[in-house]
Each structure stands twice: as structure tokens, then as C-alpha cells.
Design a protein around this nucleic acid. Structure first.
Lengths: 186, 186
DNA sequence: TCTCAATGGAACATACATGTTCCAAAACTG
DNA sequence: CAGTTTTGGAACATGTATGTTCCATTGAGA
């Protein structure tokens, strides 16, 4: 009875989680059997780690939130000019890729409480944008909430281009940064 | 035996279709029973018009494609400057609202053949953007496919703001137009 | 008003995802 | 190597969406 699983169990857990993310990204309605197969694991084992489907979704959700939090930290949103910080944030978030598409395409994930309510990361981003409003580096006619929403949309666009149009990642990132920068510049 | 249904049948068909759009927008996994209830119609009747679920989805898809086609026509994409035409297109597409969110959030719709392949509307938009590249009114560093994708993303953002953040439609449209314009301007 | 198309509801069959239990085989650990 | 943990698979129960059939009722139109 350990607080955090180690060794084999931790690895299996991780494998199921990754397979679920990968599989659900391509097929939002994938069954647990599909996911088990993708993880090279028996369906029974999946149930052993995640008693019901909701538990698995919970885990994915938590995993995603955690990654977002780390990325936000790394972006050092309070340093430098607002636009520079915004660029850093874009770059960090861009690294997510698959996980990202999943968050947006999975039914009943964005509508969950933990995604609906304003997170610390949201607040940091909003603060950053408002800082830009003050500095005069971000178009004051664009409400913070709009810029926030836009940022995620453009990121989504970038990843879509990578996935569907086979655009090289670096090109997608460049376009993403350029687009956001132009849109928010006063 | 008429080629096109008229009177009662046409109205019932339309009612089911509209209810399906409305219901599925809020709950992508809504059952046929839900939809029937929303349309004030028996579940049997739904099956009479759309033998199986896939047929209903087909109809929604066709309906959406038709609306997009009409809107694209109204925007007169070949007249005026490219940016002006792009603005008109934005305005026309913006009118869709619900249908719109549905297209993006419904599993197995965007992955369908008729949505994957390049439509006449897509070609018109791409032509418009390239025309802008030539005119020098649209940033040549932004590939047409990117601008196209971006347009839809920003529209989505706008509608999301209306739905989730209760932003007035006119404000959302204004921000949408402004954002697209700034992003594509050289 | 009369007729026939259109509808609603009940009953039924079916398919499929989910969740549970049990046991033998495999893999890890000391 | 022995003992424990972890796993895979089969079998089963359950719930729910789907699709079908049948029949009585409603309602529109001639």
C-alpha cells in the first residue's frame, strides 16, 4: 500500500494512459477494448487501474491540466514584455500536440468542472494580457478573454495543419507565433 | 411518389433535422430518443424519415454543406479587394452559429469524405486568398491553407465567446473581423 | 364528411460497451 | 528458486441505444 505507484504498476498505468490519449484523439468514442488493445494490455487490466471509464477520463484530464501548469510555469509569464511572454507561452503550449487536439475534441471534457472554472493558469494568462494592455503592447480593444480564446484556437489551427496538411512542426509554430503576434499588436 | 417531399412530410423532416442540430450541438452523443423528444415527435417517426442514425447525420451534413455554399455565393468572393471579400465571407459564415459548433464538435463529421475533400467553397476561398497575395493585401508569408484554417478557427472562437462568455453577437463579430483582418494584413 | 396518409406508442429483437468474477499463466522480486 | 504480484482471457450480468413490427389514433386534404 504505497501512496504513489512505482515500478511495474506505474509503467502499466502510464501505458494505458498514453494509449487512451493516442486512441481517443483519433476516435473520440473509442471503446475501452480499443484502448486496451492499443496499450497491449487486457481489458481486464484496464479496469483494474481505472475501475470505470470516468476514472480513465479523470486521469487524462488531470494529466493534461498538470502539463498545462508546468508549461505555464516554464513560460515565466511575468517576465519581460507581455508580447514576449505570450510568445513563450505559445511555444510551450505548442509542444503538447496530440493531448491538445484531444482536449478539444473529446465530448464531456471541456464541459467538466475543472475545465470550466478559471484555473491558476488562466489567471496568469489573463494577467499577462492585461499587463500588455497597460504597456500598450497588446491591443486594448481586444478583451483579455478574447485573446485567451484566440490563443488556443490558433494553437489548434497549427496542430491541425501539422496533422491534416502534413505541415512541418516548425513551420506551423512559426505561423502560429506570427499570427498571434499580429493579431494582438495594437 | 414525388421527387421532393412537400407539405406535412417536408415540415416534419425539417423539424427533426432542426431538433437534431440543436440537440447534438449541446450534447454530441444525444440519442435518437432525445432528438425525437426535442422535435416533439415519436421515435418511430424519426426512424421513418431517417432509417438509421447514419442517415440523419448524412442529412445534417448535406444541410450544412448547402448552407455554406449559399453563404459563399452571397459573399461574392470575386468582387472588390481580397480583404473586403474576406470580411464579407466572415460575416456570412458568422450567421451560422449553432450549426457551426456542431460541425466541429460532432465526432465522425469532419472526418467524412465530403468534408475531407476540397469543396468548391474551399477552392473559392483559396482563390480569394491567393488573389490577395497577388494584390499585396494579404500577407504572402501566410499560406492560403493557413489563412483558410485560421478563418474557421477565429469564427469558432467568436461563437464560443457568444455561447460560453455571453458576449453579444455584434461584439463577437466585430472582434472576429478585426482579428482576421489584422492577422492577414501584410 | 370521408378517406388515406401520417403519427405515436408499445413490444420485441439485437448489438455493443461496460463492469464483474474467477482462475491459470506469466513476470517480477527477494 | 520460491513466493508474490501482475496479468490475460473467458464467462457472465447489465444497461442502453438502435432498429423493426404492428396497430390504434390523429389529422390533413379532397
Amino acid at each position: 500500500m504505497t501512496a504513489v505507484e512505482t515500478g511495474v504498476r506505474a509503467r502499466t498505468r502510464r501505458a494505458i494512459l498514453d494509449a487512451a490519449i493516442e486512441r481517443l484523439t483519433k476516435q473520440p468514442n473509442a471503446s475501452l477494448a480499443d484502448i486496451a488493445a492499443a496499450a497491449n494490455v487486457g481489458r481486464t487490466t484496464v479496469h483494474r487501474y481505472f475501475p470505470e471509464r470516468a476514472d480513465l477520463i479523470d486521469a487524462i484530464s488531470a494529466d493534461a491540466l498538470e502539463k498545462v501548469a508546468h508549461a505555464t510555469s516554464r513560460a515565466r509569464t511575468d517576465e519581460g514584455t507581455a508580447t514576449a511572454a505570450l510568445t513563450r507561452l505559445c511555444q510551450e503550449y505548442f509542444e503538447f500536440g496530440d493531448l491538445f487536439m484531444l482536449i478539444f475534441t473529446m465530448p464531456d471534457l471541456l464541459t467538466r468542472e475543472e475545465w470550466q472554472e478559471e484555473s491558476e493558469d488562466d489567471r496568469r494568462l489573463l494577467r499577462l494580457i492585461e499587463r500588455g494592455h497597460g504597456e500598450g503592447t497588446i491591443d486594448a480593444d481586444m478583451p483579455a478573454a478574447w485573446v485567451q480564446s484566440l490563443l488556443w484556437s490558433v494553437l489548434y489551427t497549427a496542430w491541425e495543419q501539422v496533422r491534416e496538411a502534413r505541415m512541418p512542426k516548425h513551420e506551423a509554430l512559426t505561423l502560429c507565433l506570427r499570427t498571434v503576434a499580429k493579431a494582438v499588436t495594437p
